[in-house]
Design a protein around this nucleic acid. Structure first.
Lengths: 243, 243
DNA sequence: GAGTGGTCTAGACCACCGA
DNA sequence: CGGTGGTCTAGACCACTCT
């Protein structure tokens, strides 16, 4: 934390994560930044190289250094995008909005620790079904924090999935995934066309941006239509696919 | 791939991954390495710093630079270590070897692509039950590639779990996880004390080292006793817990 | 052609830590 | 105290790419 390049690295990273430097923003040139912050060009280069390695910046000769677009194509997001999963299987993707309501957060949602206890404002609750080639593929139940996503009430989610819309709207978000197995209850069985009690894989994703929760989504798949695949290396680099 | 420091970085990384530089091995000092490879100290420092960031090296002033121990404590391994999971719950951990046999790989295992079709040698097949405070917690079914783990046939796995033993024996291994939901069949139901058909979370891990498969393990948990948690950030850094 | 990032060097000073 | 890693600098040359 004490060295010059580390200080500058965290400073720049924070500016990007807090969206004060928006995706696409062109930074000053390396020499200008070095002079402005009173360091040598080598030191500033260390900072910019590191942030480039971390994926925050994109550098192009002659053009300059730019804040990267958040990785919408990253393996993380592949898990999220049901549409991509279905199309990867060579099947027609379709989705259908089942329900949309504006309501208070339930105490159940608060008790699970997903929403702060003192969150009193209403949330937008959506329920939808993703299908692959005429057969149901995934039942999605989502709530959205209206405060953190201004304008969300005006969007018609019957044409664009909330996942797609939010991805464009909220850059640099962090997520927590919880994965578990559940037996199909009546809602799931009817929605997904399964027998009661059939094993399903449920992926719950809680998304944060700038320290605030944005959306919480539960996506439930029939076990025979979905599994998660993850690759690990000893140093902690990982890749995720969905199958 | 063309720059000096990148070439040296991959060269050193390969030496570590292939175990030619074993964990704990002390490298030459920075100045010596620089001279030996005909580069400046700054360039060699870039190489060593990068590999330290990646977790391959550990550097200590005055002592020197050492190859790191593979991360036995990493989040990846936490998923693997059932013992750690149980103890994190504050429960007594115990495990029991149910079955051990030496047999040919089944065509089923080969067809799933987990084992090369031309693998004709026998494998060691183990089946065991992990329990948490007197109640069953996880049913584990494992096969081990005898060729890649010399001495495995002499080990008594009734005292030490194969997971622990293999972790010490095979450093720098890569793994692929497949996660899915299954209904409890008769074997699972009896082993885990569940009703037939209850939803279970199955984690299948295929481990490789130096390009060869080492072990394939399936760990099945009752859905109410286990779920996976994963944290994501926009740049692709991830952390895994198990709950 | 011109300007930017990419890389490398030689040298320097310092902090830390083990002896 | 001495040696090692950690860091920073000033300067240099090159490659790439846009104009």
């Amino acid at each position: 934390m004490s060295s010059l390049h580390e200080t500058l690295t965290t400073k720049f990273r924070d500016l990007i994560l807090s969206n004060q430097w928006e995706p696409g923003y062109r930074l000053l040139f390396e020499t200008e930044l070095a002079e402005k912050h009173g360091v040598s060009r080598m030191t500033m280069n260390k900072v910019l190289s590191q942030l480039t390695r971390e994926g925050y910046l994109i550098r192009r000769r002659k053009l300059g250094t730019f804040v990267a677009q958040p990785r919408t194509q990253s393996p993380v997001m592949e898990i999220a995008s049901v549409k991509t999963q279905v199309e990867a299987l060579g099947l027609n993707y379709d989705y259908h909005l089942i329900d949309r309501e504006i309501r208070a957060a339930t105490s159940n949602e608060k008790l699970r620790g997903e929403i702060p206890m003192d969150h009193t404002a209403n949330v937008l609750a959506l329920q939808m079904l993703h299908s692959a080639g005429d057969s149901p593929f995934c039942l999605e139940r989502r709530i959205i924090n209206i405060d953190t996503v201004p304008g969300v009430l005006d969007v018609d989610f019957s044409e664009q999935t909330p996942s797609e819309w939010l991805r464009q709207e909220i850059p640099w978000k962090a997520a927590k995934h919880t994965i578990r197995a559940v037996n199909a209850d009546t809602v799931l069985a009817r929605g997904l066309g399964l027998a009661l009690g059939e094993a399903c894989l449920e992926v719950i994703r809680r998304t944060e941006s700038a320290g605030q929760w944005v959306t919480i989504v539960s996506q439930t798949y029939p076990s025979d239509r979905h599994q998660l695949v993850t690759h690990f290396t000893p140093t902690g680099e990982r890749n995720h696919d969905s199958m």
